[in-house]
């Protein structure tokens, strides 16, 4: 998996904005990864608590439900930045230059529309679970120990918001590519970039020779 190497950079406003957003995306990605780690430790505590102290972790399932959106959504834009969401490139892989950027522009625009509508929809989903006047601001709670669910639900529109920003930057990148032409535009994920992949590969393999 190609890591971060597939996006070209330069000193333009687009590239600087893109890198700023990438830093935020990386933070979100790490939080998402730490949540996986937390999930693992939670299970260890749950098993340990039950076997050694006859005290199962109360609300184990509830906590997992609250942690899952951290894992599942925070990294969505991070993955989009590198072109990590899978697709079928049997047709688009044959295109080059402006026709390719035009096609990319269109599907990215459609994705932006979807994400914008889903921000609305997921915000409404959050809104139904949130109430300024209720205890813990909660109008929806987990089944076992009654934890408020709104903190988990608000993660979705937040993550989608960052995703929308990423998509806008990518659209900008594709417009620039359409204007300038060529095969190596900045700020958008490129399908192949052997040199950078090789550099990263070297890094990984050196990690193995411990």
């Amino acid at each position: 998996m190609a890591g971060s190497a597939a996006v070209l950079e330069d000193g333009s406003a687009l590239s600087r904005l893109e890198r700023a957003l990438y830093r935020l995306e990386q933070v979100f990605g790490v939080i998402s990864g730490l949540a996986v780690l937390a999930l693992m430790l939670l299970a260890v505590f749950s098993v340990g608590g039950r076997h050694f102290f006859n005290a199962p972790l109360p609300g184990y399932v509830d906590w997992i439900q609250l942690a899952m959106p951290l894992i599942a959504f925070l990294g969505i834009s991070y993955a989009q930045r590198d072109g990590g969401h899978i697709r079928m490139d049997i047709l688009i892989g044959r295109l080059h230059g402006r026709p390719l950027w035009a096609a990319e522009f269109l599907t990215t625009l459609a994705t932006l529309l979807l994400i914008a509508l889903l921000i609305w929809g997921s915000w409404a989903h959050f809104g139904r679970s949130f109430d300024w006047d209720a205890p813990n601001w909660s109008r929806d709670s987990t089944i076992d120990i009654g934890l408020p669910i709104w903190p988990a639900k608000i993660i979705v529109p937040i993550a989608f918001g960052v995703m929308a920003a990423r998509l806008v930057l990518q659209l900008w990148g594709y417009v620039r590519a359409l204007v300038h032409g060529g095969d190596r535009p900045i700020g958008v994920p490129l399908m192949k970039s052997a040199a950078e992949l090789a550099a990263e590969e070297a890094e990984h393999v050196s990690g193995l020779d411990r």
Binding site: M1, Q26, G29, V30, S32, G33, L34, V36, L37, I71, A72, F73, L74, G75, I76, Y78, A79, D82, G84, H85, I86
Partner: peptide, 10 residues
Amino acid sequence: LLETAKLATM
């Protein structure tokens, strides 16, 4: 963690 997050997110 990042690789896990990326694959899981995907």
